[in-house]
Design a protein around this nucleic acid. Structure first.
Lengths: 353, 353
DNA sequence: TTGAAAGCGCTAACAA
DNA sequence: TTGTTAGCGCTTTCAA
């Protein structure tokens, strides 16, 4: 008998204060309390005050689940990041965070560690949670797979990747412009043999940079020399070594553009190991302008992406869509990169007579 | 009249499939469907199969809000990060992410940009969302304020900061051990005048490192020389310049330990500007071992924190608490740092006769 | 092993 | 301007 009582009596685990409690305490209906909470205009000032008072007294906090169930809105955005440990992404995350908070959204983060399977999984999970919208940064998924997963009501904005047809759109850096700026900077310095060390072939950004590189080279009638590697310091080092080892009847290339700054860092390492001075013997240009770039020695010339803005614009686009609910075709917002000229580029070595 | 119809008829926006739909389709009660979804053992195999079948056919996905309201569990962890753009944190985030996912939790991220107010705000927001638990990394809030905010049921685990009394506990690096290793490494090399350039005085980690520095110095009977600055590259540069400018009757210090690697990077810059070679004229040791540390020239000797492990252990502690619901005193888990000896430290310059 | 039904806490028609 | 009330979709006793 005693036991029965123990189990059925409410254990004093401070019973949560609900909206009903507030209504009771303020002597009004639950609807009125709800109106006050949600700042409805048509509430008498005295009523509002007494409700606010009761809320204060009881330390009432609205229940998220209840609200979400009733409104079908989670006030939450999902953010899928390809690799949070890549120094390119933290600034993007900050941009997303700040903008989301500004619009009253919280952010559910998924780090997929460059893994396609995990990305698909995250997409699935996020939509089960009924997030209001999704930002996907540097998707590694193919368009067809995305098309398949995106088929549903969750609006998606991509960063630096092609939007699938049924999504809101994307925000990107104008990679063609960036590559052109990099290569032309080298051409102006006098370089004629400029190599490009690319990243993972599945990356959409890589595809665009590679194409731009070829286009610019063709435009200026210079040879191309290409490599491809993992987008890491190690990849950059290995790729540069390979490139350096290739026979080239016209002599070694005098400048190297890499897919990202991590790879450029590796290139610097490889150059040092190969007794090549940068920039006297070899000029190097990276992409992204991660925080480390300016701190290397020599400081790295690189094509800066507006990382934080990529994030904040993506959220703005998403929120705009949520509010207007327009079902227009995917929008593509293209931001300008900026060539940051630092110490790793200079004129090519004078040819030995 | 037409208009009325238009508004009241369900616009064909594929009405979401609910558990009731499944129950109907499978010819069972909603309770049974729920049991199947939640893998209850006592369900007849045939029943289970037909339910699963209906779920498949209808493409049913459980509604998160409904479930959360009924169970009062969000399967969500909150993560508060002091400054996501500081390269120390991404690895911590990855640790948290991976462990959370492994335990079936999603992660709501808040980046507070080193701002106490935003940290308090985030704490508030997160608990309104009824997250199951919170991980706070490098809190900038004082214990009393935390005590105040933590007063509630949301379990909290801290990373690298003192737990408030009413929380689950904390995971930290043994900062005393780390500082001791750094200073003793320098002593073994022959240094006798070792300076410490600290970080923000409000940081709990800074307080502990400073104290440890003084303790080790006292133990070995060497003088102390202290500075303090923002935990950034700029702070490190400025702080080192200041320290270098101070009059010291016994001659300049020959080694410098900094609060973190960012500051050590600044120190390297300041040394270069001051025509001091590292390590020949000045040895430098940082803390953390951020990815950049090994890539600087000279490569930075530093006290490594197990960043990813800090994150994953914090989640493990939180989840353990959630499952056992033990209301024990705060646990403190202390992880070992590791001195990474690289190129920025060496013997002190020989004194001029 | 299964079903009926009562909530979980909130919002939003509609009525007053 | 305010109140009544019917859900939102799911879980969970309790009874069968």
């Amino acid at each position: 008998m005693r036991e029965r009582v123990m189990r059925h009596e409410k254990i004093p685990v401070d019973p949560p204060v609900t909206l009903d409690d507030v209504a009771l305490a303020a002597g009004v209906s639950t609807a009125t309390v709800s109106r006050v909470i949600n700042n409805f205009p048509r509430v008498a000032d005295t009523t509002r005050r007494s409700v606010l008072d009761a809320i204060e007294r009881l330390h009432y906090t609205p229940n998220f689940a209840g609200r979400m169930l009733a409104t079908q809105r989670a006030h939450t955005l999902g953010l899928i990041i390809t690799d949070i440990t890549n120094p390119f992404y933290p600034a993007v995350v900050r941009g997303v965070e700040a903008a989301a908070l500004h619009h009253g959204f919280s952010v559910l983060l998924y780090d997929t560690a460059e893994n396609q399977k995990r990305e698909a999984q995250a997409l699935q999970l996020l939509r089960e949670r009924q997030v209001d919208g999704l930002v996907i940064c540097s998707s590694r998924l193919g368009i067809s797979r995305l098309e398949q997963l995106a088929h549903g009501k969750t609006p998606i904005v991509f960063i630096n990747s092609q939007p699938a047809l049924s999504t809101v759109g994307s925000v990107e850096t104008d990679h063609e412009l960036g590559m052109r700026a990099a290569v032309e900077h080298l051409l102006h310095l006098g370089h004629r043999r400029i190599a490009y060390l690319g990243g993972p072939p599945t990356s959409q950004v890589q595809k665009r940079r590679l194409k731009a590189y070829r286009d610019v080279a063709r435009d200026h009638g210079v040879q191309t020399l290409e490599g491809s590697q993992q987008p890491t310091v190690e990849g950059g080092e290995a790729g540069t070594r390979e490139l350096l080892g290739e026979h080239d009847p016209d002599g070694r290339f005098t400048a190297l553009v890499t897919y990202n700054d991590l790879m450029a860092t590796g290139a610097l390492l490889a150059a040092r190991a190969g007794e090549l001075r940068v920039p006297e013997d070899l000029s190097v240009i990276g992409h992204d302008d991660i925080p480390m770039a300016a701190l290397l020695s020599p400081a790295l010339t690189t094509v800066r992406q507006p990382m934080q803005e990529l994030g904040s614009r993506a959220v703005a686009m998403l929120v705009g869509h949520l509010q207007s609910s327009t079902t227009a075709n995917p929008t593509i917002l293209s931001l300008h990169p900026q060539l940051m000229v630092r110490a790793s580029t200079g004129p090519p070595p004078v040819a030995h007579p």
